[in-house]
Amino acid sequence: MAVITLQTFFIAGFGLAAIGFGVAVFRTSSMMRSALALLFSQTALGAMFLAMQVEFLGVLQIMMMATEMSIMAIFMVMFMMDPGGLGAMEMTHQKRLSILAGVVGTLFIAGIALFTSWGAVIATAPPAAQQTHDLGIELLGRSMLIFETAGVTILTAMIAATAIALPSLQRNPHHEP
């Protein structure tokens, strides 16, 4: 028997907002709107985490995505033929296949979610301060190796991305550094 609490209401509301903004990303032709729609989709997810009483991850999500998606916005404006969306350019292909794939993917996962018996749902979350503390202990204890690996991976990706993005001086001798 389903119990509709205020928490459920907020989780569902922010979830719907996240999906709505996610759809808006591909329905507008203005790149700035598209990028900020993605930002607000991610922010709604962060708020949803907060509604689920997962405070640290929620705040982290809200914080990280603001900068990340803003940086995305400038790249979209740089690389798009029609960043303002005033020319009504067609920017999609294989539309029918994509919609089909999206719908099938959603239905498949939703079916798994619906027909699996997840067992008893735990109603109470640990208090927020406890969560932050325990996550810290986990990070520097059992999961330290994974955490370190993530750090090294970030470093590698930073170097790799910079190396790819730098102009090749041999190919273009007239390039001014």
Partner: peptide
């Protein structure tokens, strides 16, 4: 919600 985001 996760499934819908995946589909989009």
């Amino acid at each position: 919600t996760g499934a819908a985001l995946l589909g989009v």
